[in-house]
Design a protein around this nucleic acid. Structure first.
Length: 632
RNA sequence: GGGGUGGUAGUUAAGUCGGUUAUAACGCCGGCCUGUCACGCCGGAGGCCGCGGGUUCGAGUCCCGUCCACCCCGCCA
């Protein structure tokens, strides 16, 4: 065996060989992907991360390939053939052999299909137990087993391709950002716990008994401090930790491309990120986004417009299907006879609801007649919405030739005037189906945003998963600075307390904080938020006014962010930044179905590692050393 | 914290109204085979039906509980 390691160096990988290599004597190492035994002649598909090469163990090679004899002895070939008879899937082997043209037996399905390697000498580095699932792209296996045997799952070509793309994204990021004058600087993972925002993982500090570090949920504060220090432009490809529930696009530990710039504004940050994404798509995918975005810029949409038209701060613009806001119309008609709508109209009339804040709304989506959805299909759409907490049903109406409504619970009660007005507002034509949702704004938006995307999938406008060859990038800009807690009537930062309000709203800070927008932005791709950031507040006077709105007294602010406030008073340049979700970016670029498929060793929904069993209980003595007691 | 889907051979699935020995494909094991490439042919093994209770003459199937995975709401600036 040592001959294959020490004397015979690997000459090629399994995806390398082409017709031009015919006649070469090569050494290949790899895994047995499949074996086809014809008795005197055994074919093996040899696999590594670059591809598959067919190798042939032929007892009577000399008769067919007289020239091969000069490269190896008959004894060695016979021994290799004997080995091949025993070989099984996933064995790790090495071969030395002669590259031959496949003649009339070419395999057009693989890049190496023009040739095969006639084995002159072989070794088995290691046998392998039969794997619990087939190492192949087109075999669906339960996630549980895949995660338990992740090292095998990662042998699948599709996952390897994705992780190789991830490598290229990292490479493109470093090259591009470095070329733009950004320095890659590291920040701590063990940081001070700060209340608010994402739940932190806590790490006991042995040397300070009873005290804890938090694992950084992002390098946010540190990157601002680096700007204060004068590093001017920073980036980092960095792990972040958040102890929150997982989703298809959320893992408890994930990677950000984190960026911060000094002496900058919103549009400069946008241009930098667009350039970065262009570079990534080019290097990792070979796609030139210039063809889709000739100006080199992504479109921008105000947050308020995104919410009104699509009910989402991350709309998927690969298709249109906009929401129609009927609230004004319904109020004008006093509810138009529909009991629920009358109720809403009355609440606004009596002043129980603030007309300028619109806490309750009425919205519609038109499913065009061309979609040709059957009644069972429509019910199916409604069924999918039932997993949304608070969802109570999806009233709909099908337009008849005369504009009247059929198949609708609203048809009987609605006034003809409002019905006509709604038909017009929706631009609905006979045969179209109008779906309604009304009540609390947030629930209406959750339901309708989901419906919009479900309908698009049902209509075949977008695939169930993946990009479908479409790249819809979008900046969603200028959301509100504050979030109102309805129960307590207090404001909290919608992003964080150091986001700069837009200049023209500064006068509203005290009089009407809910209407103050800010220089915050998200970059959206195909309905996923792939990044977000803000221009930071560096004016201490405005900062104080923001704290006042938040009800943060000087002492509170000092306790929480004292070091940052001090730093901002010590000569802070205007600065701003952004963080891109590296994993999501990879998922969307590669067409992977979940974030787990772009992370080598991901966690389950319950944040466990099925392979190692982490997290685990620890010895009482370890807890004692940390002065920690568990309760049950 | 809440809702949904699923768990049957190594894997993927079928299993009707509760009824006799729980099916199939792939994989695995043995044999044959010199042009296959998801090779083919012949033969074979393989099951705590997630787990624990209950109903019943009888449970993969019905009921209760529980564990695990996934999807969604909340949550995640």
């Amino acid at each position: 065996m040592s001959r294959f390691i020490d004397e015979l160096k690997r000459t090629h990988r399994c995806g390398d060989l082409r017709a031009a290599n015919e006649g070469n004597v090569v050494v290949l190492f790899g895994w047995v992907a499949s074996r086809r035994d014809h008795g005197g002649c055994v074919f093996v598909d040899l696999r590594d991360r670059t591809g598959i090469t067919q190798i042939v163990f032929d007892r009577d090679y000399a008769a067919k390939h007289p020239g091969a004899a000069q490269h190896g002895s008959a004894e060695e070939v016979a021994a290799a053939h004997k080995l091949a008879e025993q070989m099984r899937g996933e064995w790790v082997i090495g071969v030395r052999g002669l590259v031959l043209s496949r003649g009339s037996n070419k395999n057009p399905k693989i890049p190496t299909g023009e040739i095969e390697v006639l084995v002159l000498e072989a070794t088995v580095f290691n046998k392998a137990e039969t794997p619990p699932f087939e190492i192949s792209d087109d075999v669906e296996t339960r996630e549980e087993i895949r995660l338990e045997k992740r090292y095998l799952d990662l042998r699948r070509p599709a996952l390897q391709r994705t992780l190789i793309q991830r490598h290229h994204i990292n490479l493109a990021t470093r090259n591009y950002l470095s070329s733009q004058g950004c320095l890659e600087l590291e920040t701590p993972y063990l940081v001070k716990y700060t209340p608010g925002g994402a739940r932190n993982f806590l790490v006991p500090a042995r040397m300070a008994q009873g005290k804890f570090f938090a694992l950084a949920e992002s390098p946010q504060l540190y990157k601002q401090l680096l700007m204060v220090s004068g590093f001017d432009r920073y980036f980092q490809i960095v792990k972040c930790f958040r102890d929150e529930d997982s989703r298809l696009d959320r893992q408890p530990e994930f990677t950000q491309i984190d960026i911060e710039l000094s002496f900058t504004n919103q549009s400069e940050i946008f241009r930098l990120i667009e350039g970065l994404i262009f570079a990534i798509w080019k290097q990792a995918l070979g796609v030139d986004l210039k063809e889709l975005f000739p100006s080199g810029q992504f479109p921008e949409m105000p947050y308020a417009e995104a919410m009104t038209k699509y009910g989402s701060d991350k709309p998927d613009l690969r298709f249109d299907l906009p929401h129609v806001d009927l609230t004004d119309l319904v109020l004008e008609h006093g509810g138009g006879g529909v009991p629920f709508w009358v109720e809403i109209a009355d609440k606004y009339k009596s002043g129980a609801l603030r007309a300028d804040m619109r806490p309750e709304i009425v919205k519609a989506i038109v499913i065009p007649a061309a979609a040709n959805l059957s009644r069972p299909q429509l019910e199916d759409l409604e069924k999918g919405l039932r997993e949304i907490k608070g969802f109570r049903g999806l009233p709909r109406a099908k337009l008849a030739e005369d504009g009247s409504w059929t198949q609708s619970p609203l048809a009987k009660s609605i006034t003809p005037e409002l019905r006509a007005a709604i038909n017009q507002a929706c631009g609905a034509k006979p045969g179209d189906v109008v779906c309604f949702q009304f009540g609390k704004e947030s629930l209406v938006h959750t339901v309708m945003a989901r419906l919009r995307s479900d309908v698009a999938k049902r209509m075949g406008l977008i695939p169930e998963y993946g990009h479908g060859g479409k790249w819809s990038f979008l900046w969603v800009v200028n959301p509100p600075l504050f979030e109102l807690d309805e129960e307590t009537g207090t404001f909290s930062p919608a992003h964080h307390a150091f986001t700069r309000p837009v200049d023209e709203h500064l006068p509203l800070l005290e009089s009407d904080p809910a209407r103050v927008n800010c220089y915050r932005y998200d970059v959206v791709l195909n309905g996923f938020e792939i990044g977000g950031g803000s221009v930071r507040l560096h004016d201490p006077e405005v900062q104080q006014r923001v704290f006042n709105v938040l009800g943060i007294r000087d002492q509170d602010a000092r306790d929480k962010f004292g070091f940052l406030l001090d730093a901002l008073k010590s000569g802070a340049p205007p600065h701003g930044g952004i963080a891109l979700g590296m994993d999501r970016l990879t998922m969307l670029l590669s067409g992977a179905q979940t974030l787990r498929d772009v992370i080598p060793f991901p966690k389950t929904n319950q944040a466990t590692d099925l392979m190692t069993g982490a997290p685990v209980e620890v010895d009482a003595s370890q807890l004692a050393e940390l002065r920690i007691k568990t309760i049950t």
